[in-house]
Design a binder for these strands. Structure first.
Lengths: 203, 203
DNA sequence: GTCTATATTTGGATAGAC
DNA sequence: GTCTATCCAAATATAGAC
């Protein structure tokens, strides 16, 4: 009887190449813009001819989809600040975490959180990863006492506003990033006051 | 001696055609996306062949530039809410004005306020119009007592955050638009409290 | 000012040999 | 799995006749 290998060197190699292709695609997206990546240029940088890429991905959008999945997995798996039970501190720490993640890679933010690549929609599998990541955030905010949809909408607006301004008007800097703590103080003050008025418990 | 006409019918006609071309370009940008407009399609819709457009504009970017100038002029010339002297009310009204302007035409917002068309930069003339519009806003906020750069950065982040969320996650709806008044209350409360602490006059 | 014809570039994708 | 060769489509832009 023939021995059955527990590892498949061929598919390991294949996965490694796919990873390399996606890595080069990200590199290109960061320098030339997310919409400007081309199969020819990706192929050139990994030392292939363009058609060879089709052995690994069915289409250009399949590459975008792999990029989306990778970015979403990074968000899902990244270590989050520990919860201390002090609502304001936790809120500040978590928003710093979020804005930091978004602004450290504008191309990734564009792919994950904005709708800007014409004709690209993430696959159900990739989308599920991203939903899982956002769900972590939602649960955490709920533990802090923020579960009113309106309040969450206000909070997400502040988060994306700081992120967008940072990326658009001070890329690489920290002009808006450093406003996160103050913005959360403002938000927290507002929400707790409003909750008291409504006779609800403080978070 | 020959009579000298006070009007130049030829150049009037020419300007009218340029305006028509830009109008069709906007129409296309709104339906297909700002980046997706093509000279062929513009020409087709105005009843020309593509090369004929070059009699009116030197390049595709020149059309983008004319669009930019038109959008900036709309922002500059639009009637703004009257100032009442009540800082919070004026702030709310002005932010409603801004978010309304931005969200009513996502393509225009994208062209004027985001950097998303690869290779396009507005000309100095067009850019000056947009600067004049933003300057109106800056002056108005200064009259309300908001002139600290940090405070203005926080305010613009809230404004673009509400706008972006509205456009990205509820296009055509009002899920974030209707949070403007509350957001301004929150901001106002925060800033006045902070000013008092610093011993400065209330706005 | 508008047209036809065409240059030029660039992109995604496929066929088929090796 | 990789290559060469090629297809096909779309885009901006130019030349030159009318």
């Amino acid at each position: 009887m023939l021995g059955t290998p527990t590892r498949d060197r061929r598919s390991e190699r294949r996965e490694a190449t796919k990873t390399e292709i996606v890595g080069v695609a990200w590199e290109l997206a960061r320098t030339e813009g997310l919409a400007a990546i081309s199969l020819r240029e990706i192929a050139r940088r990994v030392g292939m001819q363009a058609p060879s890429l089709y052995s690994y991905f069915d289409s250009k959008n399949a590459i975008y989809d792999a990029m989306f999945a990778e970015g979403a997995r990074e968000f899902l798996n990244r270590d989050r600040p520990a919860e201390t039970g002090k609502a304001l501190r936790d809120l500040q720490a978590h928003m710093r975490f979020f804005v930091q993640f978004c602004t450290e890679d504008a191309a990734r933010y564009q792919l994950l959180f904005q709708r800007t690549i014409p004709g690209f929609e993430p696959s159900a599998d990739s989308f599920a990863i991203s939903v899982a990541g956002l769900e972590l955030t939602r649960e955490r905010l709920a533990r802090m006492g923020f579960d009113d949809p309106r309040v969450l909408d206000l909070l997400t607006a502040i988060g994306t506003g700081l992120t967008d301004q940072q990326i658009s008007n001070d890329p690489g800097g920290d002009r808006w990033v450093r406003l996160v703590d103050e913005a959360m103080e403002m938000f927290f003050q507002h929400v707790t006051t409003r909750m008291k008025k409504k006779g609800r418990a403080r978070p």
